[in-house]
């Protein structure tokens, strides 16, 4: 075989870098949506590569539900300092305090859906015309329909049945006043690709992804961490387990799995034998069959 070909990880990397450079060239004020999860860390890492030796020409935007893992917050602040980029924070707590959002009630209450309003306000207030996300098409069936450059109308809404066709590598980021774009540079990556790449590049990720001892309760078929933000039933008895998280979201809805994988190599091995999708441990997706589509239409990540 000729030596002039790329292996698939290199090709995915080249594609993502191409997309990130298109964003820098086509938009006035793009940001990276940064959650502290592995996918947004990967996008940030790719952005560093895309523009080296220049600094990343995007601010990071964190939509902060207030229900965070403390580890994620520290990781975020360290990374921002290292990269020398600006951090923007949209606070769900502020939205609630200002009466713009209403806290859900009851044991299953979550601030997941409330993020939509906070995100859209942050986009409007900061005059952001493009929000770069770590969404991947393999994650969820509605996300399988996403474009790399995904248009949002002036209400921040996604119209999946009326999307612009995307041909070759010609991306159309034109918008009218008040509209914006969501761009997904790692659309074509799968969970396995992300882990293989993090392993290959030795990218720093929060300790939560590695197996560790934690106080948890068993709820909705996964181990939910015990924290000040969660209400326990009488029947829910906290216990200590060795777990790790496959995805990171709100501390109230992110379930862990029992695992001994405490290195990147072991995580790659574990992921390659997984028989459940990674979002199977996310209570936000379990609410209905079209939970993701409904939230995305409203303006979710």
């Amino acid at each position: 075989m000729s030596r002039y070909y790329l292996n698939y990880l290199d090709e995915l990397e080249a594609e993502a870098i191409f997309i990130l450079r298109e964003v820098a060239a086509q938009f006035k004020n793009p940001v990276i949506l940064f959650s502290g999860g592995k996918d947004s860390i990967l996008v940030t890492h790719l952005a560093r590569k895309a523009f080296y030796p220049s600094k990343i020409p995007f601010a990071l935007l964190h939509v902060d539900t207030g229900h965070n893992f403390p580890e994620t917050m520290k990781f975020r602040d360290d990374l921002v300092a290292e990269l020398g980029v600006k951090l923007l924070v949209g606070s769900v707590q502020d939205s609630i305090d200002e009466g713009k959002a209403q806290e859900e009630k009851g044991k299953r209450a979550s601030r997941n859906v409330l993020q939509i309003g906070t995100l859209l306000s942050a986009i409007e207030n900061n005059k952001i015309d493009c929000a770069i996300g770590g969404g991947r098409r393999d994650e969820e069936k509605a996300r399988a329909k996403e474009r790399f450059f995904s248009h949002r109308d002036d209400f921040g809404q996604w119209d999946p049945k009326n999307q612009r066709p995307e041909l070759w590598n010609l991306f159309n980021g034109k918008y009218n006043h008040g509209e914006h774009f969501r761009v997904f540079p790692i659309s074509n990556w799968t969970e396995m690709d992300v882990w293989n790449y993090i392993h290959r590049e030795n990218i720093a990720i929060p300790s939560l992804y590695f197996a560790h001892e934690r106080e948890v309760i068993w709820r909705d078929n996964s181990w939910i961490p015990v924290s000040e933000h969660i209400q326990l039933d009488a029947s829910e008895v906290p216990t200590t387990k060795k777990i790790r998280f496959r995805t990171l979201g709100d501390i109230t809805i992110t379930g862990g799995i029992e695992s001994d994988a405490d290195t990147l190599e072991k995580i790659c091995d574990e992921v390659s034998t997984m028989r459940q999708t990674e979002r199977g441990n996310r209570a936000d997706d379990k609410r209905s069959e079209s939970a993701m589509e409904d939230r995305k239409r409203e303006g979710y990540f």
């Binding site: 098409r137 069936k141 589509e293």
Partner: peptide, 29 residues
């Protein structure tokens, strides 16, 4: 291969969807 709610309800495909799988030899899109 159904993605959107309307597709599931009406049993049709509306828009291009992308699927992924990997074998020991190749990654496919």
């Amino acid at each position: 291969t159904d993605g959107l709610r309307d597709e599931r309800e009406q049993g049709i495909t509306i828009d291009v969807a992308y699927r992924y799988f990997t074998t020991p030899k190749r990654k496919f899109i």
